[in-house]
Design a protein around this nucleic acid. Structure first.
Lengths: 115, 115
DNA sequence: CAGATGGTTAACGACAGCGTTAAATATTGC
DNA sequence: GCAATATTTAACGCTGTCGTTAACCATCTG
């Protein structure tokens, strides 16, 4: 049941385009807080809050870099994403084996019509 | 780019525990609007809005039942869930080779997925 | 030490989400 | 036609989120 609460926060965190953008950037490599703020043309406090949200949900983690203790590096953390995938698996389970065929079919005819 | 906008709405829709609960119920079988409202001890208007949100994102669809045109049946729709899975796949792609987290993921979802 | 730099917290205004009740729309059945 | 049923829309209040600027803490540097 604690997991359900965590999903609330996880989905809420991912609902924001800026935060998904941050995740997208962190996919490539860890980044500094200020670097992320600049990347989205946003004030440092605003980005700081986004990072706090992401940190709280466990989607990212922060750690210091040796040479300068002021700088904080943010990086992705896989666990929550796996949790998300687990939820998806559970929901999609009901379609059973037909999901794959449906998915493929949907991708082929995407944007068109439904039978 | 249209897809990104859609993800906003999809994640926002899933951030609400009631709406995830609705999805969970619809997993088993289609349900009537009023039935869903009762299931969550919630006023019909409140549930109606939740259903509108889910409908708008394409996570569920509504269709009438023959014998009584007042009744509307809601059911799940697979496409958006697949889209969500595609996003997850993309994000998770980055650490596929480089981290040990792939093992964690495999452990969490063991026995559910095909190779 | 003084000042600049990196980052976060505090306070504020704008705006959207969620629930409620009341009213509206559509359909069924007597 | 008229009351009852199923669902949605309208209007209201509460609460939380997102961005901004100002102030704060910690750390590096000359």
């Amino acid at each position: 049941m604690g997991a359900a609460r965590r999903l609330d926060d996880t989905f809420a965190a991912l609902a924001d385009p800026t935060r998904r953008g941050v995740i997208d950037l962190l996919r490539e490599q860890p980044r500094r807080a200020g670097e992320l703020a600049a990347a989205f043309d946003m004030s440092p406090p605003a980005m700081s809050r986004h990072l706090r949200v992401l940190r709280k949900t466990g989607l990212v983690e922060e750690d210091a870099v040796e040479d300068d203790a002021r700088v904080k590096l943010y990086r992705l953390r896989p666990e929550r994403f796996s949790e998300l995938r687990a939820w998806l698996d559970e929901v999609e389970a009901f379609w059973g084996g037909q999901l794959q065929s449906f998915k493929e079919h949907a991708e082929r005819t995407r944007g068109k019509k439904r039978p």
